[in-house]
Design a protein around this nucleic acid. Sequence first.
DNA 1: GATTCTATAGACCGGTCGGTCTAGTGTCTA
DNA 2: TAGACACTAGACCGACCGGTCTATAGAATC
Lengths: 198, 198
Amino acid sequence: MKPNVAAPQTRDRLIAAMLDALRGRGYHGVGLSELLASAGAPKGVLYHHFPGGKAELAAVAVRVAIDNMLSSLDRLFEKHADPAVALAAWMDGAQKQLRSSAYERGCPLAAIALESTPDDVAIRSALAEGFAAIRARIAAALENHGVEPAMASRIAMLILAAYEGALLQARVAGRSDALRDTSAALIALIDAQPRSPR
Amino acid sequence: MKPNVAAPQTRDRLIAAMLDALRGRGYHGVGLSELLASAGAPKGVLYHHFPGGKAELAAVAVRVAIDNMLSSLDRLFEKHADPAVALAAWMDGAQKQLRSSAYERGCPLAAIALESTPDDVAIRSALAEGFAAIRARIAAALENHGVEPAMASRIAMLILAAYEGALLQARVAGRSDALRDTSAALIALIDAQPRSPR
DNA sequence: GATTCTATAGACCGGTCGGTCTAGTGTCTA
DNA sequence: TAGACACTAGACCGACCGGTCTATAGAATC
């Protein structure tokens, strides 16, 4: 009756392989066989764990990626009282990950977001909800720091947009300037805000 | 010797079809046959105009997309003296295009950027140069408006990143809030800057 | 009018795609 | 120890992938 405790490994390996693929080449960019090879799993396993095939695996991977981002944001906001500092650390982390992977590993959400069509209901809704959740976390941190709610929500939107856009540009440029400059501009602008609720 | 004057139509239709595909589903998301069907052209034509095949067509399409963006930016900065106003108009244009296409048509550069790997040298360098050129235009407009050069360059980076990131989110969400909010936040922050004015 | 060159046209190809199917293995329950 | 079940394993499939090839149409050159 109970699910086998040792079993989930393979499932997790599949998810990790998909995440890696999404980061590097996008959903359509990776073939199933390549994916399975990098997970060290045969085909049958995929359809056992994800009857919906590649698309279902991707949708699950998206949810996992979002959970990861949320918890890493939570960690940052807990560690740094000032959201601007947390933001800088966040961007810095992205920079490091990008550089240490020879500019291959960007954000797993962005790639699949741009490849998706309105027909991909499951993936699009997972993405939309995920992005909203991330924005909500950032907005909450800003509010805690005294930013007026409506403005906090808008700035959170800007921050996430800037994060994704900067990561994208840094990746194709093969240099992390984009992330550094975006982060610097963002923080300069926020700090220069007239209401300084400190 | 002279190139046929009436001929380029087909070539242009191929480029347009590729641009459309990149906007909607990304590079790997569209098949050659689908592409050719939507351009109303047989296979031989593609390899006549683009011996490098799909990849070469994509690289050319990227350059065209960049030219388009540059000239539409030029038009906006010419029309609006205040860069913040021009920026708002830019974002507004993206919003309209997205909405009028049922949230299918995003930025043709972003999708292929995220699908590309370091091996895709031609495409990556075209993209990187293109993004740099776009940032340079924005930075120039800011400088003309009295923003200090180093800061202008950083803010230009932020603006382009925010544009791409917001477009991406608006597309998956199926609503244009992301673009509206990002634009509002950006302008609010820039306007609140202590003007080192002119 | 023959030749040449650009452009159009689509049959055709091997390879890979995502997906299905059957078989085997190990473990827990009865 | 028999059966059920979760999981692993990979052969196999039709469809479609990007790409090559030959044939032809039409204008320009001689």
